[in-house]
Amino acid sequence: MIELINLYKTFEERVILNNISVKIEEGETFVIIGLSGTGKTVTLKHIAGLLEPDHGMVVIDGISMSGSSERVKNKLRSKMGVVFQSGALINWLSVGDNVALPLREHKRYPEAEIREIVDEKLRLLKLYEAKDKMPSDISGGMKKRAGLARVLVRNPKIILYDEPTSGLDPVMSSRISQLIVQMKNEFGVTSVVVTHDMNSAYYIADRIAVLYNGEIVQCDTPENIKNTEHPVVRQFINGSLKGPIDVD
């Protein structure tokens, strides 16, 4: 279980997260939506232990990520994977070597087994043909899928997705959304997904949280979010220019 307790974060005196508290149950797919710059990625980075809150804490399976030593953080991170918006592939390693990187660095398996695992994940994400290509030679969408393959080889219990479908074609977006659901159903993976893609959000989410001005203004099931009366949420999901959200 992931608990965000009174998470408060400022950057240069600007409040990004204002006392956010939420519990994400094991096996749940929790989607965070909201305007750009409202702290969605910052929230993910707090869960991953890449940022420290000014106040409050992130607790994962009863252990605090916030303020802990690197050793404790690494122990928590060993259960976790992050799919970055840009893919975050190491630019001088081929796609295959990028996917194999965490296994090679931690020497968990013999090399032959690593190659098998890597090939399996690359086939799953339709990337096998790009195995020997360098990140600079593949599209943004392929980079994102390679980043996901690199997460999947570690069999994490928690996966954090930062805009997993942005920049992908509709078919591949659906495939990624399907994969997120599959990870939950088959392996009980807990997912926290930051997205602007409402179709994907409705499809994958158990609950959706709407961030606005550093606060969660509504956290509910996809059905209730669709039928919400909250003016901010309503305006956001409909993409309307009229409403309380100042677009200028």
Partner: peptide, 22 residues
């Protein structure tokens, strides 16, 4: 620096790979 701003360093950290060692 490019690795830092393109989140590659964060990716290493998440994989428990020390950027100092790597």
């Amino acid at each position: 620096g490019t690795m830092k701003v393109s989140e590659e360093i964060d990716a290493l950290t998440i994989m428990s790979i020390s950027p100092v060692k790597f």
